[in-house]
């Protein structure tokens, strides 16, 4: 019966291995790889007649020749970079405060307080900003009450409103990696920097920031990607003129039913997003798997 237990065991292991491998391969190929390949193929074709398609680059040339598309693309990228930098600048002092100034219970409490808004749907958070910023909203009301404005002020539907919403939505993804890396910095290193005569600025620049670099980088990458791919915030806070690239993709797919053009836009956004992630990793010499996990 148990003539060759080793062999039985080995076949069992092999079988177990294939059973573990099959689902992940199915998942990645059917839901990630093939859909993206198919999207590339669709973006490279053109409708000749009903149900008749031919190879064509026209969807890509349309992108470069139509200023609206091109401008929207560049605008989305630039706004995303600005939003990422502003998020970093706003989040860094707060993260430093939580990680290095506070200790014990207040530290944990404040960290959790940072996370709370992000358990709530992005839709609800954006809605909150709409109530605050709109013409009949709270900020406009407060300005009138204090006598700073004599009529209702519309603060919704402009770039600043989009920026505020994007920064607000991204905050968590910056604070968490920053607090984690800053927390792992030994206080005695900062003290040593001061003992050796360094100024606050100098200690910050040559001890704290280099140590926090992995956290800064993973925060920036995640925030940038999320901002670039955001649809809700620009649409709701920016109104009709928000000109966000994901809106173009939505319009082509759902409103105009021009899937070929939409697919080309999708590929372009994906390339831009991957390119910037790759550049960010190259510049700071980080590995993709480390930053993501």
């Amino acid at each position: 019966m148990s003539g060759e237990p080793g062999n039985v065991n080995r076949t069992q292991y092999r079988l177990g291995f294939w059973l573990l491998l099959a689902p992940i391969v199915l998942w990645l190929s059917l839901l990630i790889i093939l859909p993206h390949i198919d999207m590339v193929l669709v973006s490279l074709r053109e409708r000749i007649a009903s149900r008749q398609y031919g190879f064509s680059l026209s969807n890509y040339t349309a992108f470069f020749t139509e200023p609206l598309y091109w401008n929207t693309f560049v605008r989305t990228a630039v706004m995303s970079v600005i939003a990422t930098l502003l998020t970093l600048i706003i989040a860094f002092p707060v993260s430093f405060y939580i990680a290095k100034v506070l200790t014990g219970r207040p530290k944990i409490a404040l960290f959790i307080l940072c996370l709370i808004p992000f358990w709530v749907s992005e839709l609800v958070r954006t809605y909150g900003w709409m109530i605050l910023l709109r013409e009949t909203g709270l900020i406009s009301g407060a300005l009138q009450w204090f006598g700073l404005a004599d009529q209702p002020v519309e603060m919704l539907y402009n770039d600043v409103a989009i920026m505020v919403g994007l920064i607000y939505t991204s905050m968590l993804f910056m604070v968490v990696p920053l607090v984690t890396t800053l927390d792992s910095l030994d206080n005695s290193l900062i003290e040593a920097g001061y003992d050796l005569g360094g100024s606050s600025l100098h200690v910050m620049k040559s001890i704290v920031i280099p140590h926090a670099m992995p956290g800064i980088m993973s925060g920036c990458i995640v925030v940038f990607m999320l901002t670039l791919g955001n649809y809700l915030t620009p649409t709701l806070l920016g109104g009709k003129d928000s000109l966000w690239f994901t809106e173009q993709i939505y319009t082509q797919f759902i409103t105009r039913f021009n899937w070929e053009q939409g697919a080309a836009f999708g590929i372009l956004l994906l390339v831009l997003s991957s390119l910037i992630v790759w550049l960010g990793l190259k510049i700071t010499k980080q590995s993709f798997t480390r930053v993501m996990s």
Binding site: L31, I32, G229, I249, Y250, F253, W259, G266, L269, S274
Partner: peptide, 14 residues
């Protein structure tokens, strides 16, 4: 790393 909109669109196309 794939933006949510593009993930959705690619699955729609496929």
């Amino acid at each position: 790393v794939v933006p949510g909109v593009i993930l959705g669109v690619s699955i729609l196309v496929f």
